Amino acid sequence: MLPENVNDNLNLLDPIPSSELQEFIALRDLPLGKHKLFQISRVASPVGHACAGSSSKDLLQTFMDYPVGGLCPDDSDLAQTLMLQGCEPLPRRRCFARSPNSSSDPLPFPACLWSLPPDNAILWTHYACKNFSCLGRHSSSSIMGCDSCLDLDKEKHRWVSARDDHDLVIHGVLAMKRGGLRIGLDLGGGTGSFAARMREMGVTIVTTTLDVGAPLSSVVAARGLVPMHVTISQRLPFFDNTMDIVHAEDIVGSGSMPAESFEFLVYDLDRILRPGGLLWLEKLACSYEMLQTVYVPAIDRMGYERVRWSVDSHNSRHVFLTALLEKPVRS
């Protein structure tokens, strides 16, 4: 039986968990209050909490109320709410996913990389907008947390040439890495433009994304790329020492990730990177104090070589760290 209060989640674990496990599963308040996109004020880990809280339990009951063998309810927002509350991974269901209206084949490679799919190739039913034109009339930052994600003409020029002294370009990163890059991960990759650019360079990138206000995962897939529906709280589903590169752009949400959660995240990124692999942090936004007291010490404890390190401090509210770091060999 599930406990009524999420704070009772430790009762699910017998014997009493170690101090490190308690540290990982503790609920943490976001330093800057409620997140403007996800409308959450606390970060929950998927281990231990699962769906134990009373609010999650009610949502889970709704999520699992469906016609067996029929069409699944149109409840993607409900699924993501559960995931963001720590109910991750979600349980399997015995119902069929709804299909978009279009049954036409997607565009072939490489035309698919820089083309949006037709509106009728996407399920829009649970979004305020019902087509890409509508999304284009809204502020991208308020809908998805990314600037011009769906303007692929603009996105196509990113990472090709530096916009300022703090930018890294893909050709330069590839040239820096002896032995080349083959496979990698893009955390919170929006519509997949980083993965598209890297695929043109012969590098396969998996993109994690949430459908926040727009069908980002469908766009990633339509571009011939691989979307992965996980939050950054989950242990990444990759083997140890496998990835050549991990790219993360402003993944901590303008300084709103608790310090302890950030440290668990970077250790997990280290776990999946192979020795000599690259961790590319792009425009990690935070206050100058958090940069010096939280993020830099956490990164330095990893023992990575600073291939590139740049802090843009011209913004009055935040500084932005862009870093290219190489994982050491440990024995």
Rank of each mutant, 00 (worst) to 15 (best):
R197W: 00
D8L: 08
D250S: 09
S139F: 06
T81V: 10
L210F: 05
G213P: 02
E305V: 15
V296S: 15
F194G: 10
L30E: 09
G253I: 05
A52R: 03
N7S: 14
S103R: 12
K57T: 06
H157G: 13
Y66F: 04
E289I: 11
M83F: 07
S287G: 11
H318C: 08
S161R: 13
W159Y: 14
A111S: 14
S55N: 13
I232T: 06
L13S: 10
P106A: 15
G188V: 04
L281D: 02
C95F: 00
D8M: 06
S313W: 14
R158H: 03
V246K: 00
S54T: 02
E23M: 09
R163W: 05
V47L: 10
L168S: 09
P117G: 15
P17A: 05
L59F: 09
T242G: 13
I299P: 03
L84N: 12
M144I: 15
P297E: 15
F132V: 04
V160Y: 09
L225W: 04
S261W: 10
F262P: 01
L278D: 04
S19G: 05
A128H: 11
G192E: 07
T81F: 07
K156S: 15
V47T: 15
T207S: 06
D167M: 05
Q292Y: 10
P237K: 08
A214S: 09
L273H: 03
C95G: 00
M243A: 08
A162L: 09
L210Q: 01
S141N: 15
H318V: 07
V246C: 01
A195T: 05
M290F: 11
T62S: 10
P275S: 14
L123Q: 06
F264I: 01
A195N: 04
Q39R: 14
L135R: 02
S19H: 05
D77W: 07
L90M: 09
V169Q: 13
P108M: 12
P258A: 13
R199P: 06
L152P: 05
E260R: 11
R163M: 06
Y304I: 14
S55D: 10
V311I: 12
L82K: 04
N315G: 05
P46V: 00
L32V: 06
F24E: 09
H35Q: 07
H171I: 11
D240P: 04
D186V: 07
T207R: 00
G86T: 01
P106G: 07
L273Y: 01
Q80W: 06
A248L: 00
H314E: 11
L152D: 09
R178G: 14
T204C: 13
G172V: 12
M257A: 02
A222S: 13
M64D: 01
M228L: 13
D105I: 06
D300C: 05
I272M: 08
A214D: 01
D74I: 03
N131Q: 07
I16Y: 12
L13V: 13
D58S: 11
E23Q: 12
A298Q: 08
C95I: 00
G192L: 10
L2N: 03
C286Y: 07
R235P: 13
A128R: 10
M243G: 01
F38W: 11
C72L: 02
W114E: 04
A111W: 04
N120G: 10
C129D: 14
R163F: 08
P73L: 01
D29Y: 04
M243K: 01
L187G: 06
D147L: 12
L60H: 06
F38H: 10
S217I: 03
D74C: 08
C72Y: 01
L284F: 12
F320Y: 14
